[in-house]
Amino acid sequence: MKLKILPPTLREKKRYVGLKMYSEENLKKEEIFSILWNSIINIYGEIESSKINLWIVDTQKVDNKKRNQYNIVVKCQRGYE
């Protein structure tokens, strides 16, 4: 028995946001997610932040001699960009 795929009109809309993060130290993907999640909880609160469906799509470390720079692509729910 196959699972039925939701039609596009019933799927939740997603948005992709590009971020730049600067740090004094090297960060792992888990630490970046933790920092983003904690800042979203501080802004929206726990109930609203659970509706955001935050997901890190891609992280890249950029060569920068002054500090560590990360380019991050995040997927979230439409309306919470």
Rank of each mutant, 00 (worst) to 15 (best):
M1C: 12
M1V: 09
K2V: 04
K2G: 01
L3A: 01
L3K: 02
L3T: 03
K4C: 05
I5M: 15
I5L: 09
L6Y: 13
L6A: 06
L6W: 01
L6F: 12
P7L: 02
P8E: 01
P8Y: 03
L10Q: 10
R11H: 05
E12M: 04
E12N: 10
K13L: 00
Y16A: 12
Y16L: 03
V17L: 14
V17E: 10
V17N: 10
G18P: 12
G18C: 15
G18V: 03
L19G: 13
M21A: 10
S23E: 07
S23P: 06
S23I: 01
E24C: 11
E24Q: 15
E25C: 03
N26V: 12
L27T: 03
K28S: 12
K28Y: 07
K29N: 11
K29Y: 14
K29E: 15
E30P: 10
E30M: 10
E31W: 07
E31Y: 04
E31Q: 00
I32C: 15
F33W: 08
S34C: 09
S34D: 13
I35Y: 02
I35K: 00
L36F: 00
W37Q: 14
W37T: 12
N38W: 06
S39G: 05
S39Y: 08
I40K: 14
N42I: 07
N42F: 14
N42D: 13
N42W: 09
N42C: 13
I43H: 09
Y44N: 07
Y44I: 07
G45E: 03
G45V: 02
G45W: 00
G45D: 05
E46G: 04
E48R: 00
E48Y: 08
S49R: 15
S49A: 07
S50G: 01
S50T: 12
I52P: 14
I52W: 14
N53D: 05
N53Q: 11
N53H: 05
L54I: 13
I56G: 01
I56H: 05
V57T: 01
D58I: 02
T59A: 07
T59S: 12
T59M: 03
Q60K: 14
Q60V: 09
Q60G: 13
Q60D: 10
K61V: 15
K61C: 15
K61H: 03
V62Q: 05
V62L: 04
V62P: 14
V62R: 06
V62W: 06
D63W: 06
D63K: 03
N64R: 02
N64H: 11
K65S: 00
K66G: 10
R67P: 09
R67T: 06
R67Q: 04
Q69F: 02
Q69T: 08
Y70L: 08
Y70S: 04
Y70I: 06
Y70D: 08
N71Y: 04
V73Y: 04
V73Q: 06
V73H: 00
V74H: 03
V74K: 04
C76I: 08
Q77I: 01
Q77P: 15
R78M: 13
R78K: 07
R78D: 10
G79E: 00
Y80A: 05
Y80P: 13
Y80Q: 15
E81Q: 13
E81W: 02
E81G: 03
